[in-house]
């Protein structure tokens, strides 16, 4: 009787162990499958994002090329004609180089205006401002 009980206990234990083993094996298996599924899903998402990124880069390259082409000199000249802007490139003959010092020039121009408010006489308007502004010139 005692032997039978021991045998049954051992069998039960074995059965329990088998159930636990199968259960844990199943859980582990499911876990592995789930993990793999997650890895696959994440990899797929990353792949989709990479594809979108690549597409964005390709679109950006196309846009940049189109922008550059629109900013080239021949394109700008074409627009100048189409839109009747009348712009011309700056050339040296269009530039008037001033020989006098800029300070004196500006001072003279401003002083002339100020002085004519008071005195209409031409000789005073030309001579007085230069003397007036000479004192305001920065020290060199």
């Amino acid at each position: 009787m005692k032997t039978l009980t021991k045998t049954r206990a051992a069998a039960s234990l074995s059965l329990l162990a088998a159930v636990v083993l199968i259960g844990s094996g199943g859980v582990t298996g499911v876990g592995i499958v789930w993990a793999r599924q997650q890895i696959a899903a994440t990899a797929s998402r990353a792949q989709v994002l990479k594809k979108r990124l690549d597409q964005a880069e390709r679109s950006l390259a196309e846009l940049n090329t189109a922008l550059t082409a629109e900013q080239t000199a021949p394109a700008l000249e074409r627009r100048n004609v189409e839109w009747q802007l009348g712009l011309v490139p700056l050339r040296e003959p269009q530039v008037v180089r001033v020989a006098a010092a800029d300070e004196q020039l500006f001072a003279g121009r401003r002083g002339r205006g100020l002085f004519t408010d008071f005195t209409p006489a031409a000789n005073l308007a030309l001579s007085a401002p230069s003397a007036r502004f000479a004192v305001n010139l920065p020290r060199r």
């Binding site: 180089r97 020989a99 010092a101 800029d102 300070e103 060199r140």
Partner: peptide, 15 residues
């Protein structure tokens, strides 16, 4: 020589 003062003015009077 005539161009020098203009250059001076453009540079803000600093030398």
């Amino acid at each position: 020589a005539s161009a020098t003062p203009g250059l001076f003015a453009l540079e803000g009077g600093r030398r």
